[in-house]
Amino acid sequence: MHKTACIITAAKFVGYLVRLEIPDRPVSLTKEQVQHIAILARLQLEDDEFEDVVSKLSKIVDFVDQLQAAPTENVVPMAHPLNMSLRLRADDITEADNRDRYQENAPSVESGYYLVPRVIE
């Protein structure tokens, strides 16, 4: 229901779009997909939050799905706005040992190591 509303809002704003097509297939995400994405992204979502994420994420995915309608045959993907090649640096050691200062922000350190719960390999 609100999904349709969202598409119309988008369509209104991009009304001048040449080939705007409202997708006829539902691309909305399932709870399982959202759960999988949350695991990949290492984000814990509380139960009440989860419902909201499923619905809003679905809206967003539906919204960006209108890109599918754009004709992009033979178009080179644009990864970056700067059309230049990478500048390189000389192989010089320019960093000193600032461990103590850098570790002031760390939640848990011991003997110079950052600590995390035991990882079993």
Binding site: D92, D97, N98, Y102, Q103, G112, Y114
Partner: peptide, 28 residues
């Protein structure tokens, strides 16, 4: 190399833990 691939930290082996971890190496 003398220094790391993306930072100016030394690559020498065997230093004190995290003594050769710059802000770039730490992903600050």
């Amino acid at each position: 190399t003398n220094s790391k691939i993306f930072s100016g930290s030394s690559t020498a082996y065997g230093a004190e833990p995290n003594a050769q971890a710059s802000l770039v190496d730490l992903g600050y």
